[in-house]
Simulated scan of single mutants.
Amino acid sequence: MLLALVWANACMAAQDPLPSWNDGGTKQQIESFVTKVTKPGSPDFVEPAKRIAVFDNDGTLWTEQPIYFEFFFVLDQVKAQAPQHPEWKTTEPFKSALAGDMKGLAASGEKGAIELMAATHAGMSTEEFARRVNQWVSTARHPKTHRVFTEMVYQPMLELLHYLRENGFKTYIVSGGGQDFMRAWAEAVYGVPPEQVIGSEAELKYELRDGQPVLIKEANVALVDDHAGKPVGIERFIGRKPIFAFGNSDGDQQMLEWATSGDGARFAGLVHHTDAAREYAYDRKSPVGTLDKALDEATAKGWTVVDMKQDWKVIYPAEKQ
């Protein structure tokens, strides 16, 4: 009898496509949507070619506090390149970056962040940039958890990505983060290949170096893939309107509006960071990952809101039982 019970429980666990999600309304909404758009004969059936799912990255697929992880990478690049730039010691935003002055960096705003990225990335080939990113993500560690950053992806969202792909969806990352930064490791971590990663990007230039063709990153920005830039990036790179979209902040609001504006069944989800013990708790007042207007719209339009504390059994893969 005991053996039969153990076997039954094991079979149930094997059949559960989202084992790290607690049973409840949120999980049911996701599974119900996937069932109705993939079941032949369903009035909401969507052919596989149109099953497009888009996900924000920072705060949706991995942690984004205390600052966006890519910014840690940029700061490390500033420090590594500082010996060749003595003028940075007295010039903002480099002075604050070298001193670890987060208030000073915050004061420089988006303009300062773009200046830092341009100074540390411009003139580099895409291959060299990818090598630097991969070296960094394999060694750099989060200041609070001391885990490498790629260990701070959300186990429930990894399961969701897999579940969608198993049901004929094509999964894309659509993020305000750097496109080349994410493309360097997204396939190994999320199972999302480079051609399905859309992010903010710099202009590229083709040239020959030592007789070899290379693409060189330039200082000029080609696309800021955030807020209203996300629907633009989706149209530019995918050419189809998604039927499933997940984000976590006001920066994702327009993407969710775009995905839910078409005919037929549509799904919009937000990850609400409510777990200060296992991760972080923040929303309307946070300078990173602000969730204010999008949360109000989610309530008004019936979007699915994931309560991290209530809906997720575990946060990170290392916590799996």
Rank of each mutant, 00 (worst) to 15 (best):
A107N: 13
K230A: 09
S20V: 04
G24Y: 04
Q179E: 15
T90H: 14
E159L: 08
P242G: 04
G264M: 09
K285V: 09
S286W: 04
E70D: 02
G262A: 12
E187I: 00
V148Q: 04
D210Q: 14
A186H: 05
F267S: 02
V314S: 00
G176I: 10
A265N: 05
Q179G: 06
A99N: 13
V214C: 07
M1I: 06
D296Y: 01
I114M: 10
K285W: 03
Y206M: 03
S200N: 13
M124P: 07
R141H: 08
G262K: 12
G233M: 06
G123E: 01
V6S: 09
V74I: 15
T274L: 01
V305P: 05
K320I: 11
V214F: 11
L291I: 07
T126M: 12
V232A: 04
P93K: 02
Q84K: 15
N167L: 10
E151M: 03
D16E: 06
Q28E: 14
G109W: 02
K79V: 00
K230P: 05
A80W: 02
T304L: 13
R132Y: 04
D210H: 13
F94K: 05
W303L: 04
V174S: 14
W312H: 01
F129Y: 14
R183C: 01
H227R: 14
G25Y: 11
N220Y: 03
M12L: 14
Q81C: 11
E257R: 12
E159G: 11
D311H: 08
H121I: 00
K320R: 14
P66M: 10
F181H: 06
A281T: 04
D263H: 06
P194A: 15
K217R: 15
M1E: 13
K27F: 06
G59T: 07
A106W: 10
K313D: 00
K111D: 08
D44V: 02
D76L: 09
Y68I: 03
V148L: 00
G123T: 01
D307Y: 02
E31H: 02
G239K: 12
V271D: 12
A184W: 06
T26Y: 08
Q253D: 03
F55S: 03
P86L: 09
V6T: 12
H142V: 09
T63C: 09
N9G: 12
G239L: 04
H121C: 11
E207N: 04
A268N: 00
S261Y: 03
Q77E: 12
T38F: 11
D23Q: 13
P86T: 05
T274N: 10
F33E: 07
G178E: 00
T91F: 01
P40Q: 03
M117H: 01
H121S: 12
V306L: 14
V224M: 09
F45G: 04
P93T: 05
A97Q: 08
R266M: 06
I234T: 01
S138R: 15
G176P: 08
H121L: 15
M182I: 15
K39D: 09
G109A: 13
Y68L: 10
T26A: 14
L18Y: 07
G264P: 04
E110R: 15
F169G: 03
G262C: 07
F169R: 10
L158I: 11
Q155N: 05
